[in-house]
Design a protein around this nucleic acid. Structure first.
Lengths: 231, 231
DNA sequence: CGCAGCCTTGACAAATGTCAACAAACGTGG
DNA sequence: CCACGTTTGTTGACATTTGTCAAGGCTGCG
């Protein structure tokens, strides 16, 4: 593996503190691959052969049942996905596909399991990462169960506003995927955007302008225990 | 702490493999408490002072937003809850209350964090437990996003059938809580039970009889990646 | 017995999904 | 650069799902 990739991976929280010898061992059988957009990386129910690291581009985690499909999360650089399946050595619960041209590092799960058993710093980092992932999906479940789709959209926009620090921003994904991520149909999302107009949301294509942050916030009632990325 | 409690806790996967000295240290400032039914144990947003272990009884994890409330999970003996908050030292995302008379062990989170940093077997067990929790809530989110409430109920009943190994069983919780857990109103659940009659589900109070397992299964389309506890 | 809490039912309202049509945006090959 | 076809987004009409409110029944317990 190219040295610059190796360094990128090394700098991720998950690998930053581990012993260098162990990190080199982990990299030994790993490799980096470039994928075009819309390529399936893994399918749910497959055995977890590799821990994946998104170095560039972005990846959609999604799931299907009975002919329906839903987007569960988007993974952006630099972070890993399907860590839980890897460490438990159980089948993937979600499928993954590239959204755009992406560079992905593949680390054999077997090596991850072998090394985290001996490297205490690595084990700690895994604990931290898994706890973080767990909390993030708990928030997602609360969002789904406690809010209507209009409220979910309103809060999603506020989170984007917070992330960019700007009252105007572009959506980071297609509307159809956003709809799926928020747990609704495209048509419903289209109408939801209209429904937020009275609260000062202006939409032009994929460009969003929050005209009245106060009104939107009053409607959305954001809550740190659902909407904060950090806590 | 009484020796028998100590042994019960020791036997949980999470603590079974750790060094004995460390386990004793963990128990030093821990204590066991008896709670009546319907007592609040923790509230979301509080700092995670204690890791909780349910020794007997049962505990409801729930969450509220904007006047609405939803049940997220039920914790039964012998297992722990709010591990993720404890290890990350971040506020609880869910509240907890006893459902019945319950005996709960309280282990200072600070000690958990201190000891898992030095005890590799404990760290491994925590990884395993968190990965398991993560996967279980991913399944929950898939259930919510991919299925209608009628389908969720049907699959819930099939899971209970599987767990008990019997075509007849009693519901393990009040219907109102089941409704909340499944993400619907009591009224909707009431009608959903009626809606499953054509597929061979007979309901008498909280007693369920699955008259036609084939029909129900054909309707519910259970899937290991959503419904299996083990994978 | 009588109260309180849970469950059920009916009538209705709101939220969300489906289907079909069309418009707008995008990418590709000529 | 344009023409074309494909994909994505929007809209309207309508169906289904789910929630709300109010009333009444059932049950368990003091």
């Amino acid at each position: 593996m190219h040295e610059s990739y190796r360094q990128e991976i090394r700098d991720i929280d998950l690998f930053a503190e581990m012993d260098d010898k162990n990190f080199q061992a982990l990299m030994r059988a790993s490799y980096v691959q470039n994928f075009p957009p819309r390529i399936d990386l893994i399918q749910e129910n497959e055995p977890p052969d590799f821990l994946h690291v998104v170095l560039s581009g972005s990846v959609d985690l999604f799931s299907a049942w009975n002919g329906r499909e839903t987007s569960m999360a988007t993974v952006r650089p630099i972070s890993t996905f399907i860590l839980a399946a890897s460490v438990r050595n159980l089948p993937y619960l979600m499928s993954a596909r590239t959204l755009e041209k992406s560079r992905i590092a593949l680390i054999p799960s077997q090596d991850v399991r072998a090394i985290f058993a001996t490297d205490s710093a690595f084990a700690q980092a895994i604990v931290s990462e898994l706890a973080q992932c767990y909390r993030s999906i708990v928030k997602n479940a609360k969002d789904l169960k406690l809010r209507t789709s209009l409220e979910r959209l309103a809060n999603y926009l506020l989170r984007q506003q917070e992330r960019t620090g700007n009252l105007e921003f572009d959506l980071t994904m297609e509307k159809r995927r956003l709809a799926s991520f928020l747990g609704m149909t495209s048509e419903n999302l289209s109408r939801a955007f209209k429904g937020l107009e009275p609260y000062g949301v202006r939409v032009t294509g994929n460009h969003i302008e929050i005209v009245n942050l106060n009104d939107l916030t009053r409607y959305a009632k954001p809550n740190p225990l659902i909407d904060d990325y950090t806590t």
